[in-house]
């Protein structure tokens, strides 16, 4: 198996988890009600934990490929620039209101839930172990975010309008989740990873079921934005990284 492919695939999984964790963590201390502030912070912590496991694994692969490299979870998170990030565009979108944040989490959690079900059976032992451990967390994320989509969709007139608006804002970024990049197809061929196109039916079905209960309309499938998986991002990612990476960039080679 080509090590570069495992590296790219792992980095993609890690970047997804980190970038959405970073976005969600912006809510910490600013949530609409204390219990939900705590719940979303929990999800950020779980996703950050997943990202760390994946970066640690990616770092070990990189160091094996090149003996001179001394990659760590932190060099990967803090010292790569936007073009090297492989997360889907959906993760980096601004939080918007609470409804948009919930909906983004819901779209992603349903995807991650389906992905990790398969990834548990990866022939790569580290990835399967990470998937197995993460699946317990993601099961809760999916439940929590579905419940909130339903509650807000079928709550008041205002909350319904806001949720339907969130759907319109985010929908064109959902297609990328299940549109495979080259390294995903290769990883799938080697039974290391999963072809995300194969998850599309299950993903769409859950979305349709939850939307129905939430009295939300599923948009007609239209044009979908892509590029994040290949490092072509929205204008938002640069700002996320500028903020996240600033200490490491300003004080290079320091321990924290």
């Amino acid at each position: 198996m080509n090590q570069q492919t495992i590296f790219d695939y792992t980095i993609h999984l890690a970047d997804n988890a980190l970038v959405i964790a970073q976005r969600n963590s912006e809510w910490c201390g600013h949530g609409p009600v204390l219990e939900q502030d705590i719940a979303l912070t929990n999800i950020s912590l779980d996703l950050l934990g997943q990202a760390r496991s994946l970066y640690q694994y990616a770092a070990s692969i990189r160091n094996k490929m090149n003996g001179n490299d001394q990659a760590t979870e932190d060099t990967l998170a803090y010292l790569r620039d936007a073009r090297e990030f492989r997360n889907c565009l959906l993760m980096e979108l601004p939080n918007g209101d609470w409804g948009q944040t919930i909906l983004r989490q819901f779209f992603f959690s349903v995807y991650q839930y389906n992905l990790y079900q398969y990834l548990q059976r990866s022939s790569d032992n580290t990835l399967s172990a990470i998937a197995e451990k993460s699946l317990k967390e993601v099961t809760y994320h999916q439940r929590w975010s579905s419940e909130w989509v339903i509650r807000l969709g079928d709550g008041t007139e205002e909350s319904h309008r806001r949720m339907q608006n969130a759907v319109h804002e985010l929908w064109m970024f959902t297609g990328e989740l299940t549109t495979p990049a080259g390294y995903e197809l290769e990883a799938a061929r080697e039974n290391i990873g999963v072809d995300p196109a194969s998850l599309k039916a299950a993903w769409s079905q859950t979305i349709a079921e939850v939307f129905q209960e939430a009295t939300l309309d599923v948009p007609a499938t239209g044009w979908m934005q892509t590029g994040g998986k290949e490092g072509r991002h929205t204008e938002h990612l640069g700002y996320i990284l500028a903020e996240m990476q600033f200490l490491q960039r300003t004080y290079p080679d320091s321990k924290w």
């Binding site: 600013h30 609409p32 009600v33 939900q36 409804g99 339903i150 509650r151 807000l152 709550g155 909350s159």
Partner: peptide, 16 residues
Amino acid sequence: KAHDNGAWVREAAKAY
């Protein structure tokens, strides 16, 4: 601001 921006969420949760 957090409280005001969250009012619609709390109202929706109660209505639901």
